[in-house]
Design a protein around this nucleic acid. Structure first.
Length: 268
DNA sequence: GACGATGTTGGCAC
DNA sequence: GGTGCCAACATCGT
């Protein structure tokens, strides 16, 4: 579920709610959802909550910290969490000294929380492994990356090592907005096309952020509220709907094993 | 009930 | 090293 706009929405809320909060205890309801020794974090106070790509980073007042990934169905809840206290898919509960709780809920159990013994080092390592945000990369740098690969352009922008934060929803909508066929080899794009694509990706991500993300399926923010980007998808999941530019019926194809929606008339 | 799909990522084979 | 496929798991729609 969560792509850059959703994770960033959650990050903002977690930051407001948790900075200054002292961790008292962890309740791990599903072992697979938690990595490392939770006792290392007991007594630590949250100093900051950062986002790198689709990862969340919790720094504390000591070296130790915690990283988390929501993968497909993860939720982090800090307000309106009554439902999560007894919910079937609540995997980890963190209790703070104030009595506040953080619930990590995840149906598919792909996501996780992980203790990082040296959170600063772990953050730098992750930053090195991941590509830049669409806002951190220049059109020139993005073009250079595209020229290096023959893979479909959609695969490339979903590859977090090249560009981080973009997932299937915003990749589909961005490619439509830029008028580029997702199946085109990345290296076949012109300078103008890569610049248009980067601009389009920034625009759809900004829009997603503004409306609180996409709650097409199970996404809710850290206050258990839905976003509304699903009400304004441009092409994502809109098989058969008229293209918003030319009325041509949108089609679904598979690119890199992922559902891909496009307008065969507008996207060349 | 079977089958295919689902927002992510990493491991593996070629 | 680039690239593509599939599994990890649970649920939902056809």
């Amino acid at each position: 579920m969560p792509e850059l706009p959703e994770v960033e929405t959650i990050r903002t809320q977690l930051s407001s709610a948790l900075v200054g909060e002292k961790i008292v205890s962890f309740e791990i309801r599903r072992d697979k959802s938690f990595r490392g020794n939770p006792k290392e974090l007991s007594g630590r106070t949250i100093a900051s909550v950062k986002r790198i790509g689709k990862y969340l980073f919790f720094h504390t007042d000591k070296w130790v910290g915690m990283v988390g990934h929501l993968k497909m169905t993860g939720r982090m809840i800090v307000k309106n969490g009554e439902f999560y206290q007894t919910a079937k898919h609540t995997r980890v509960v963190v209790t703070f000294e104030s009595g506040q709780r953080l619930y990590f809920w995840d149906t598919r159990v792909f996501g996780y929380l992980e203790v990082t013994s040296d959170s600063k080092l772990a953050e730098v390592a992750l930053q090195k492994r991941l590509g830049a945000d669409p806002w951190q990369i220049s059109p020139q740098e993005f073009h250079t990356i595209c020229m290096r690969y023959k893979r479909p352009i959609k695969n490339l922008i979903l590859d977090q090592e090249n560009l981080s934060g973009v997932g299937n929803i915003y990749a589909n909508d961005g490619l439509w907005k830029a008028g580029i066929d997702p199946r085109r080899p990345a290296s076949s794009l012109s300078t103008i096309e890569t610049e248009k694509l980067l601009t389009a990706l920034r625009e759809v991500l900004e829009r997603g952020l503004l409306v609180g993300g996409a709650s097409d399926n199970s996404y809710v923010d850290a206050h258990n509220e839905k976003g509304s980007y699903q009400d304004e998808f441009l092409v994502y999941r809109l098989t058969g709907a008229p293209c918003k530019k030319c009325q041509t019926s949108l089609t679904r194809v598979v690119v890199g094993g992922r559902g891909t929606w496009l307008c065969s008339s507008c996207q060349k």
